[in-house]
Amino acid sequence: MPALVDVQGLVKHFPGERALLGLGRPRAVVRAVDDVSFAIAPGETLGLVGESGCGKSTVGRAILRLIEPDAGRVTIDGQDVVALGARPLRALRRRMQIVFQDPYGSLNPRMTVRQMLAEPLAIHRIASGADAQRRIAALLEEVGLDPSFAQSYAHELSGGQRQRVGIARALSVEPHFLVLDEPVSALDVSIQAQVLNLLAELQRGRRLTYLFIAHDLAVVRHIADHVAVMYLGKIVERAPAPALYAGPRHPYTTSLLSAVPVPDPKAQRQRIVLAGDVPSPAHPPPGCPFHPRCPHPKKDARCRTEPPALREVAPGQLAACHFAEQPL
């Protein structure tokens, strides 16, 4: 099946601001996203995981052109997103949408839920008047909110309710592809499951394609068909979810998996505790970006000098490690 979303060689660097009120030396360029490629088949979910600052949100925003990518090709629904002019891009926005991490910051505090849901309908001339009201009520019902919430302002809603409004707003234009940028990270534990179930149902009902960004590997395992692991702006491992969780090939993936706390006192596994901190993407280490923290016993001079390529190690499973054949 041809992919619905195809990303090739995506690059986004943020220029360093000058320190000291614009007089100092310019800071180093932040390589937020450095040559990222993946594809998502229609109706499937790609989970994108990695630690804070590794560039996950930047990938999500760049493929929707909410920020301009520096290089790379992004195809969504057969259209080249990067080359699109302003007007066709706005038309394409009907097919691709985004739900944000912060349910408090992503809703306009001065608008009611009704106004927020009516706006996209007006922008794309999808519906107006009574028809729009009917659609708004249906949307609210679909995301599990009482229609009476249409009158509410964001600050009158709980975190889970706000996130539902954010999802309803994204769905209002009937997109095919949704970027979910950490949609449950800010929610209470007992509310996360509600929203995850809702997202799964919507995906089945509407045949949606998801890019699901998260830092929680357990959540990603629950929802994703394929998983890509990012470290310092690069994808270090990409595989079908069952393969990745059963047999991670990159030492970073292995460490990440072992660091997730498991809510079972009997099943406390041996944690691999990585030394040091996540380096800054402004100064990525040479060679393999993971080498200063890598616990792999075979780690050698090659790791410090030669950047490993992302290559297929097992059928469908790609890893960027010189020793991917001998995983931890």
């Binding site: 909410l66 009907r94 991490q101 910051g105 992503s106 306009n108 922008i123 794309h124 707003r169």
Partner: peptide
């Protein structure tokens, strides 16, 4: 830089709106 502005742009809202 707030996310609700990014959301509006993602929905296709033009600069004026």
């Amino acid at each position: 830089e707030r996310e609700f502005v990014a959301a509006a742009r993602a929905l296709g809202a033009g600069a004026g709106r």
